[in-house]
Amino acid sequence: LEEVPLEVLRQRESKWLDMLNNWDKWMAKKHKKIRLRCQKGIPPSLRGRAWQYLSGSKVKLEQNMGKFDELDLLPGEPKWLDVIERDLHRQFPFHEMFVSRGGHGQQDLFRVLKAYTLYRPEEGYCQAQAPIAAVLLMHMPAEQAFWCLVQICEKYLPGYYSEKLEAIQLDGQILFSLLHKVSPVAYKHLSKQKIDPILYMTEWFMCAFSRTLPWSSVLRVWDMFFCEGVKIIFRVGLVLLKHTLGSSDKLKSCQGQYETMERLRALSPKIMQEAFLVQEV
């Protein structure tokens, strides 16, 4: 884990406070600067607030005052509740917030996910939404997390969680064609081994790397993701592929299909480390 020196942290906090207090001005005139500061990492104390500003979920909440409470009071459809309930105890089970069955974390997770199925009944619940909502709940209260989830599902990753999962399959193909440019060696190897992108990128993309990367890297990736959108997810995916399969030397020990997939499943900690990853992205 990288320690940001205390003095730097204080400076960053006051810069972020200034930005958040004059948000519209900053967004209109100094977007590039916001982007740069997101790349450097949002101070932990302000991260939850910043994500709400960046995603536009703050505005969304203000436009829909009382909506979440309204959804929260409705019973919900049994077919969704059943799957949601089965997933509550399996999100970040070692995090203190989610460790106890029926504890606050799990209760809020249920409320947020249930509210979404009522907000978009035609979409319902997708299992990949649970880790996303859980990460949000670690940073903000249930109502705020709900609107942030809405923004992710509708603005950032539209179609990822809906019925036929077409968007994720399409993005798998796009990732693969981008890989052709970024790392021809990795591309050729995956083509030769006939490894469909769906096999390694589904969880990466649908959970926005929250179940893949070490925690400090997840947060840094999400800081950039909230500012710049899905292209960050693509870039992270490309960095991981390139540094795992991108040279003949790396390929020596994963000649077969199985060895290759095993390698992609157990990525080297070195390439997932915060400083390295962010710099490469």
């Binding site: 997933d87 105890h89 399996r90 999100q91 089970p93 070692f94 460790v99 299992q127 990949a128 649970a130 880790p131 769906i198 096999l199 589904t202 969880e203 649908m206 959970c207 179940r211 997939m261 499943r265």
Partner: peptide, 13 residues
Amino acid sequence: FPPGQGATIGVDF
């Protein structure tokens, strides 16, 4: 066991 295994997203092997 417990806590639970995260739901499989996609395919694993």
